[in-house]
Amino acid sequence: MAAIPEPAVADSDTRPTLKTIAAATGLAIATVSRALKDAPDIGEETKRRVRETAALLGYRPNRAGVRLRTGKTNVIALVLSTETDIMNHTSRLIYSIANALRGTAYHLVVMPFFPDQDPMEPIRYIVETESADGIILNQTKEDDPRIRYMHEHGFPFAAHGRTAMGIDHPFFDFDNEAYGRLGARTLAERGRRRLLLVPPPRAHMYARHMTFGFSDEAALLGVPFEVAEGVTSDSGGEAVEAAITARFSQPNPPDGILVGSTTAAMAAIAGAERTGRVLGRDFDLVAKEAIAVLRRFRQDVLIVREDVGRAGEFLARALVAEIDKRDWAERQGLEVPVKVEQGRPARMGGTQ
């Protein structure tokens, strides 16, 4: 391997180029270029060598030049609602996508949109201005106009979630129907006899999956159930806490709760506790989380792990393959939960 030039090269008036890296590594310029693009026909050791050399030299691609030559920006846009569970779910998703893109030619930008904003607005902006090569989005709907728009315009995208539109595209999803069934079954096995679901916003596809799985499993088990009205798992802590307090203050309160977010889990527990109930004795709660938080809040929470890191990495790699028009066997993925991490055995009795 040719010696790497002294660091002074990176500090000189001449910016390092692909030719500089090629000279330092003894590789062809075309090989260097393909290695930096994470091309599948380049070996991992060669890619590592090229990336390390590029980093030592301070190489940065000239984006204006890249766009002129290729028509590409080497940017992937992650479009997220500000309503998402930023503490637990979204932060992990952003990190995992950015981490999967490290060492590739692509960089991540995050574009938020607000509750009072048309969700189509950031999508149209990116597609019309060609300010990114592809989009990752979440909170998909059964019939999602964002996905229809990008599909019709031939714009590469990947979705964290599914639709019922019959459009074939890259996606990764958590099986929320399986989560709903698993939660209802676990609560019933712990002796709970009145179940409550605090679902995601009903317009989202994963809310439909979760609600169906929960209600169908509860019905099969012969356990009475209800779905919270007026609040969702995205409503915010104060709203969820108030709604649970009100429900537990009424006759025949639930003794088993399934929720769709970490924030809603903590708020629901706080709401029930305001009426004198004790978690693990008077009621149980099943929640899913991407980052270990809930056990620090209450030891008796029943937890289903969601591997959002796996989702982000999958979506990044699938979208890059879509942009580069490469065959990619795993264009669609589904994480199916099979385990609930139990707290202590249910301690029946108390104030109900």
Rank of each mutant, 00 (worst) to 15 (best):
D116G: 07
A132F: 04
A178F: 03
T186L: 00
D116Q: 14
E121V: 03
Y59V: 09
D168F: 05
T84W: 05
F174K: 00
Y149P: 07
G183M: 11
V75K: 02
Y59F: 15
N99H: 15
H107I: 05
I97A: 06
V50W: 08
L182P: 02
T53Q: 04
L101G: 09
G103I: 11
Q117H: 06
V66Q: 14
T104M: 07
H160A: 10
A178E: 11
P119Q: 12
V110Q: 02
T104P: 05
L68W: 05
N99M: 11
I97D: 03
F171D: 04
N176M: 08
V127D: 12
F171S: 12
N99P: 00
Q117G: 01
P119C: 12
R69M: 13
G134V: 10
G166C: 01
A54L: 08
G71C: 11
A178G: 02
A55T: 11
F113S: 01
E152W: 07
Y106A: 10
H89D: 12
G154S: 09
T186C: 06
Y106H: 13
L101W: 13
V109T: 15
M150N: 07
I123K: 02
H151M: 01
S131H: 11
A55R: 14
I147E: 07
N88Q: 10
R102W: 03
D173T: 15
I136D: 12
P122F: 10
A164F: 03
A188I: 00
V109D: 03
T73C: 06
R148N: 09
A100H: 09
L56F: 06
D173N: 13
D175F: 10
G103W: 11
G134Y: 12
K72Y: 07
D144F: 08
I167R: 03
A159D: 02
